[in-house]
Structure formats: C-alpha cells, structure tokens
Write a protein that binds this DNA or RNA. Structure first.
Length: 535
RNA sequence: GCGGGUGUAGCUCAAUGGUAGAGCACCUGCCUUCCAAGCAGGCUACGAGGGUUCGAUUCCCUUCACCCGCUCCA
C-alpha cells in the first residue's frame, strides 16, 4: 500500500513539474506511449549522454588492462524485412497463442506448450480421459497429465507409460481439430485456434499497401548493429575485441503496457554488441556484467534496490550461454524489474545473418597470422595448400556480449530513487535527489531581492554559466519559495546574489540535499559546480 | 487479450436532474535582505461520444485513459 502511494506521488510530481506527460493527453491519451516534458527530456538526455560518454568515448580499461575499442552507429528504424527473418522475430519466436473461451477461465497459453494427453483406461470398465496440460515437452506433459487426472478424481490409467501426449499443432492439423483439446487450466474444450501475436509494428514502405512492401518498426536496436558488422569492420581498422554501441527507439506491439513508463510500446534502448574471440568471451561477459552494475551505482542508484540476477537455465533464450539481468526494485512491484540484460549470445546473431544474407561474417586475425607466417614460412616451403589450412586457424566467427539497457526504464529508476520527502525547519519538503550529473538543471541563479543592483549581478552570472551548464534564472517571490521549487526539480545547487555580493563579489551556494550554504567568490562558481558534478 | 475498480481546476477534495465550490499551486501588482510570509486582484474543471429528459457533471449505453489482478514482455 505504502509503495503504491509513493508511486502515485512520484507520478503526480512528474506531471506537475514537467518530467513526464501522457502522450496525446488532450485526446484522452494513448495506452503505452509517453512524452517527456522540459525537465524530463533534460534528465533522459543526461542519462543517454552519460552512457555514451562512459561506454563509447571513455570506457575503462578492459580485463587485461588495455584500452577497449568502442564505436557507435545510428541505424534506421525500418530495415529490410529479411533482417527480422534472420533474427527470428518473424516466424521464429513470435509464438502463436491460444486462449480459453470459457467464462471464468479466459487464460492465454503459448500454443507450443499446450498438450493433450490421452489417458486410456487401465482396466475394463474405467473411462479413458483426455487431459490438457501446459508443459515444455511431451514427456513432461504425460507426467503432469497423471497428476491432473488424479486431482480431478477421474478414473484413469495408473500407468504413466500408457499415456499418449499430443502436441497442439498435430491435433489442429488432424481431423479432431482444436475442439478436441481441453484447456490446461479449466479442462473445458473451448480453446481458440492458435493465433500469431503481433510482435512488431507493421507499416508499408511506399504509398500503396501491398504484401511486397510490408516493413516493420524495429523491436530492438541490436539487429542494426549486427547488420552493419562488416561495414564497421571494413571502414574503421578495428581489431577484435571491439564493441559497437547504439542508442535508439524500438517498438513492441505484443506487450501489455503497465506500470507507468516501465512497459511502453515505444521505448529507447542503449545497446552494446561487444565482439570478441570465442576463447575470451567468458571474461568479457563477466567484465561487462560487473561494469554495467557499477555504472548504475555510480550514477546514484545507491540503495539495495539494485540487484543483478543471473538468469536460470530455463529462462535463457535458446542461443544464450548466460544472461544477467540488472534489476531494480520499483515502488510499484514486489519483485525487482529488469533495467538491463547483459547477455552472452555466442555466435548466434552473426551465424544467422551469414546464413540469411549469404555474406561471410568471419573475422580474420591479421596480426596473429603475420606473426605466425613469419615464424613458419620456411617450414611451409611454399606449399600453398598448407598455408591455406594454417590460415583457417586465424579465422573466427566472433562471439557477442550484449549489454542492453532501457533508457526509459533507467530514467524511471532514477526518478524513483531520487524522490524524497523530508522536513526543513518543521516544513514538509519534496526533493528530487538526482546525481548532479543527471540533474535536469544544474543550478538556479537567484537575486535575493529585486533591487540595489542584485538582479544585474545575478543576470551577468547567469549569462556566464549558461554557456556551460543548464542553469535557471528566477527572481520571482520569496527566496525560500524559489529554493523549494528547485528542490522539486532536483536542481543540486542554488546560487544566491545578496547584499554582500555587491561589496565583495561573493555569492552563497546552497546544497539541495542539506540546504547548507557556503560563500564562494563569483569567479569560481563555475569551477565549484564542475567539481561537485564529478563527485 | 480477460476480469474488477476509478475518471470534477495543475494538485487534493466538495456539492448537484436546473448558474459547479474550497484549500493549495500558478499568474499580475504592492511589499519583501536566505528556506513555500503578508495584502490586493486574476486564470483554470465535470475524460470523449451517443441516448433518456423541457433540461444530464449527475441516470443509461458505448468508447478512451489510468489503477489492481491474470496473461504476455525488455
């Protein structure tokens, strides 16, 4: 209950102060889409900039102490539809679903996980029974069917081995049809035919809609990176290992929007595909997993609400060797929710694109080859065949480590983490305790009163600072009120020009979290803000 | 996608089958020398569409959005 209240207060503040609005609100809104207002766009931009700076332009040294090679791309949202065949988004894992039509059930199942198990009578006089179950395999379905039958207290075969499990797809194509399959939940024979889920948003490239020009809005930014793997390699002189990063919008049609901006149909990803030699993939996986967790902590997620969680084997996508979800315990949920997944994807993606495009995606280790051939040239004796064989050893299909972060999800986590209520001199206060680096406004410039030359001094300082920082000038009303307004916007510093400023050119610098003030010379305000933003 | 709940001003909440009201916030002025002070004035609302009715914010239907649960999902 308490948690929900916190969330409501936060949502209210985000709207009131211009962090987040519902999309198309004047028309009643639209489910699953959100707009960032003036403060929100600054916050999110600071987050994306911090990510780009810390991951692409200035990543820390790698596990071996050497510099990491990182570059970026910015790919189109609409790509050749074959990309999505290769990735598996078309046809592959857009699993058909079946729903139960009976009143009071209405459950939804993945069609490939529904089985009908025929339990034949154990002895004459018993009735055979058909049981619907949800299971991962036919064997598992048989075992489950026995249990279900027992619970239903129906006469059934006691011999599990006599049970025959049939997949839903085999029944649908048979004469019996879907009508023969009992619902795994209520056992009524009232399932709908399997329906494909609309995983991706569809559109058409060109003025006329035909099946030939159907295109999709990308459901992830990753595939643009894989599709450009050869281009990047050929245009940059990069050598393995290296990473390609991208920030961009992605769209998913099948999800059910929920929990404010957390689950939206349009969202922004910050993704890295890090390519490395298969033999080094494990250490790079661990490196990125740890680095990414530290990044969140460094940007102010200091509470124990941040939790990395290694995915269990049964959760893993079929191609993934290992995946760690970095999760945050949002106020709206009892369970931590995923901010980022760091996945070891093996060579799955490059293999898929090599297969579907017909292009070779192998990497050739020229450095290693040059060293080897120098040392072994003599022993080869000019044998071209042997040389070609040796060369093969320096070719590999790189493995991929994918740290994939949600920009909107992290923005929401930052908002949740920052939200605080406290008391200043007996007065209640709402304050957003953003890390100074992420705060939408870095400092407020405030003349204490509007006379005696204070506005002029304040405005001059404002002009100076705004060339470097997003600062806000406010001369309206009592200074205490202005401080509180900035507290709600999460502005870390308040700079006030008072009577003393006129005499000695010093100003007061107020800390948002403690409300403590120190006097600093006007000339060193910029450096002071710079220093505190790093801290 | 299914079931339940909610919808009045920027926010919190009233009232009403017959001109919708308050507090806070916001804006303008005056006054103000450090944490939402005071005075005067001002702006702003019945989610949308349809029906019943002389008249609907109120009753009915549809729809949209949000919240909770299931399902799905990054």
């Amino acid at each position: 209950m308490r948690l929900t209240m916190d969330m409501e207060n936060l949502v209210s503040l985000c709207r009131r102060r211009g962090f987040i609005f519902q999309s198309s609100e004047i028309y009643g809104g639209i489910n699953g889409f959100w707009d960032y207002g003036p403060l929100g766009v600054e916050l999110k931009k600071n987050i994306k900039d911090a990510w780009w700076q810390d991951m692409v332009r200035n990543p820390p040294p790698g596990p071996d102490g050497r510099e990491i090679s990182m570059v970026g791309v910015d790919c189109s949202i609409i790509m050749n539809p074959k990309v999505w065949e290769a990735s598996g988004h078309v046809g592959g894992f857009s699993d058909p679903m079946v729903a139960c039509k009976s009143e009071g059930c209405k459950k939804l199942f993945r069609a490939d996980k529904v089985f009908a198990v025929d339990l034949s009578p154990a002895k004459p006089g018993d009735r055979g029974v058909m049981i619907g179950v949800e299971a991962n395999s036919e064997a598992e379905a048989q075992m489950q069917a026995i249990d279900v039958a027992k619970k239903l207290k129906k006469k059934h075969s006691s011999d599990a081995n006599s049970a025959v499990a049939m997949s839903l797809s085999s029944l649908v194509s048979s004469a019996a049809g879907i009508e023969a399959v009992p619902c795994p939940n209520c056992q009524q024979k009232s399932l709908t035919a399997p329906r494909a889920f609309n995983l991706m948003f569809e559109s058409h490239a060109g003025a006329i809609q035909t099946d030939e020009n159907k295109v999709y809005l990308r459901p992830e930014t990753a595939q643009g990176i894989f599709a450009n793997f050869k281009n990047v390699l050929d245009s940059t002189r990069l050598k393995l290992p290296f990473g390609i990063a991208q920030i961009g919008k992605a769209f998913r049609n099948e999800i059910n929007p929920r929990n404010y901006t957390f689950r939206s149909r349009e969202f922004e990803q910050m993704e890295i595909e890090f390519f490395c030699h298969p033999s080094e993939s494990k250490q790079w996986y661990e490196f990125w997993r740890d680095l990414r967790k530290q990044w969140y902590t460094r940007l102010g997620i200091k509470s124990d609400r941040l939790r990395p969680r290694e995915q269990g084997k049964e959760e893993l996508a079929h191609y993934s060797v290992g995946t760690t979800d970095i999760e945050y315990l949002f106020p709206f949920s009892a369970e931590p929710q995923e901010l980022e997944g760091v996945a070891h994807r093996g060579d799955y993606d490059l293999t898929q694109h090599a297969k579907h495009s017909g292009k070779d995606m192998h990497y050739f280790d020229e450095d290693g080859w040059n060293v080897w051939i120098q040392a072994n040239k003599a022993s080869l004796g000019g044998d071209k065949k042997k040389e070609a064989e040796a060369k093969e050893k320096f070719r590999c299909l790189p493995h991929v480590i994918e740290p994939s972060a949600g920009a909107d999800r992290f923005t929401l986590a930052v908002l949740c983490e920052a939200y605080a209520e406290d008391e200043i001199g007996g007065e209640k206060r709402t304050v957003m305790r953003f890390h100074p680096r992420l705060a939408p406004i870095k400092a407020a410039i405030l003349p204490l009163v509007n006379r005696d030359g204070m506005p002029e001094k304040a405005h001059a300082l404002y002009r100076e600072l705004k060339s470097e920082f997003n600062v806000f000038y406010d001369d309206k009303g009592a200074v205490g009120r202005r401080y509180r307004r900035q507290d709600e916007a999460g502005t870390p510093f308040g700079i006030t020009i008072d009577g003393d400023t006129l005499k000695d050119n010093t100003v007061t610098l107020r800390d948002r979290d403690t409300t403590q003030q120190v006097r600093v010379p006007m000339a060193s305000v910029a450096e002071e803000i710079r220093k505190r933003m790093r801290g």
